[in-house]
Amino acid sequence: MTIMAGRVTFLFTVLIMGAIVLIGVNMSQAGKWTPKIRRLAGLDAVEEAVGRATEMGAPVHFSPGIGNISDDSAPQTFAGLEVLAYVTELTAKYNTEIIVTIRQPNVFPLAQEIVRQSYLAAGRPDMFQEDTVQFLSSEQFAYAAGVMGIMNRRRIAANLMMGAFWAESLLFAEAGAQVGAIQVAGTAAMAQLPFFVAACDYTLIGEELYAAGAYLSQDKVKLGSIGSQDIVKGITMVIILVGSLLATADITIIKDLLSK
């Protein structure tokens, strides 16, 4: 057994980053280090949106994106589902209906379980209905057609989209705007961010989506992880700065290391 060519740096990066994250999580759990997260306007808007839906007596729509849980888009889907747990509890507290639409058959049982548990945690298991979490279609645009139809017919007041999105992002955001919903989106899908930023009231950009779960739940494990991510980011910045300065002097040692 030997390390594949070009994967040495990858192995060490995963080990170092993994150690930083684990140490941060452990320290946070033990109460030795509690990172505070700065204010994120987009996430404060989530509660505002649910509140407005309550005032208007109209439902909240939530989509965890169209990514899967068994491929590269998995982390975004998980981050979206973390937000879903929080939003469901919030709607239970306010006694407002939530409609969760699903594209991936694999995500469907997960989302249903999360919503059921969140209602239970909020002491409102009675609020869970068969059509609270709706699978629409695994075909991208059939899912989009279904979501747009639901948003229109149910006159939703809040539209929350958190996860991995592709071309349907703008379809949802404009259809949501048409019915006058408050819209908060979050995604790390680079190609779709411009549309969310342009058409939604608030947008969580890239890593902000991953911070959402920690920010909303104030869970110690998640907060520790966010703190560790900042440390990793700091190290990355130093590597970029030093690497570029060295490259200016024609020294490519860091670049070569990264290619190992």
């Binding site: 590597i239 570029s244 200016t248 990264l258």
Partner: peptide, 9 residues
């Protein structure tokens, strides 16, 4: 990261 390590020239 690798693609960002550019000489500042």
């Amino acid at each position: 990261i690798k693609a960002t390590l550019l000489p500042l020239n």
